[in-house]
Nucleic acid binder design. Structure first.
Lengths: 240, 240
DNA sequence: CGTGTCGTTGAGGTCGCTCAACACCAGTGG
DNA sequence: CCACTGGTGTTGAGCGACCTCAACGACACG
């Protein structure tokens, strides 16, 4: 089960990006495997002491934040190659919950050792900051979606972005197997589940998607872009 | 105009936190002052090449993201001691706009030199990650507000949080001098300006605030907490 | 088959948006 | 001194996108 970073398919997306072969071996010595988590199991909980960053190796996770009134806000969904836990670096306590959406496995990267190692490897140091920064950029886009977009655009933007992430993982970008429930998706989008359900129906009627429970096929990328509020340049709107 | 980090009042909040006196001098050699910006002037624009992180020294800034349809989303407001530019570390290009809300000054911290210096100073390295992580935590809270809170709660949460930041800066926490326009505030909260205006009126009628244009006085902190959706423990709601 | 979870659909209500008018203030120029 | 202007903030009326509530259908699991 334990494999080396070198042999890992996620190599280029992950921490090892842009470090040498020698250094890769040292990193391998730090990274620990972890027994797979089942659907619904927590990787860590808000308030827990921070020790490690986690890299999704297979499956998927959601991170959530609890309001003081007990509701949850889904902050993000995390696919293989993505790193979870950066919010905990601020004061060594996890600030959100991370939960497996399906049977999933992670690499456990003890931060103290990683930081120690990074001090001598500028490339790794840089990559760490880069990934933390990407988290910020991702959140900013999420914020823009929540603040300025209406329901239809939100779902379209989400599907497009998920498709893009699938492409980066060398999965078919038009065949989305949603790991999250409608409820979790709606929550992430700042909507209620009924609205999302109606949108899937509408998108199917428009010939943009083929929906079968959690299997979504994107039929018309150009129109999906339009629905996302980004009129594709090569396809003029019929109104003009 | 140019002052040292050592003499700076923001010392403890900023990058120098938890580094030694010697190291502080080295940091001083890196940091460059910059001529003050007037209200409306941009510190950097989205798409610009990233060279420096900026620390707000006086005044205040907003960061914004532009949608593809040309609208803006305000991502955050930045008070003295706060650091702007972390979103640019992902690929050395600024991913948002930063604009002065009033006459303001910043410290310019060239990142290449900072990173170089940080390699030999574990405390600084750690502090850099800490601040980046705080940015993530802040965005997560903003997201929760946008996703799960209604208008009244949003404004109350914002005012409470601003008051807290004032307290950290040793300013009176009940006397808020809002540097942003109603429009910018509404945008940040994911609302329209009319809604925010009505809320200020309502909060004043409720005896929670005293509002005079951009000068806001918090009259009743406990009730503001209630409006923020956090029933204060020592003050039971009159309904029970 | 019953039970529970999840997703879909319908009917009705409401919070916040849209649109429009007006108040307030500062700056400008006669 | 006042009129004029533009920017900013407030208020009112009406509407609509999304939420709420409720029922039902589909599927998994015992």
């Amino acid at each position: 089960m334990r494999r080396t970073c070198r042999a890992c398919a996620l190599h280029a997306l992950c921490l090892p990006a842009s470090i040498s072969a020698d250094e890769l071996n040292s990193l391998d010595a730090i990274v620990r495997a972890r027994r797979p988590l089942d659907r619904g199991q927590q990787l860590f909980a808000s308030g827990a002491r921070f020790q490690s960053l986690y890299v999704v190796r297979s499956g998927s996770f959601k991170t959530t934040l609890e309001t003081n009134s007990g509701e949850q806000q889904v902050l993000g969904f995390h696919l293989p190659g993505e790193i979870i836990g950066f919010d905990a670096l601020s004061d060594d306590v996890h600030r959100c919950n991370a939960e497996a959406l399906e049977r999933s496995s992670v690499c456990d990267v003890p931060f103290a050792q990683l930081d120690e190692f990074a001090s001598s490897v500028p490339g790794l140091r840089r990559q760490l900051m880069r990934i933390a920064s990407r988290e910020v950029v991702k959140d900013h886009e999420h914020l823009m979606m929540m603040g300025r977009k209406q329901a239809q655009e939100r779902l379209a933007i989400f599907l497009r972005s998920l498709s893009e992430r699938y492409r980066n993982l060398h999965r078919a970008p038009d065949l989305l197997e949603l790991p999250m429930s409608r409820h979790e998706l709606a929550n992430y989008l700042g909507l209620v589940v009924e609205t999302v359900s109606r949108l899937f129906t509408r998108f199917e009627e428009l010939g943009v998607l083929a929906v079968n429970r959690k299997q979504i096929r994107i039929v018309d990328f150009a129109r999906l872009d339009e629905l996302a509020g980004e009129p594709s340049p090569n396809l003029e709107s019929e109104a003009c």
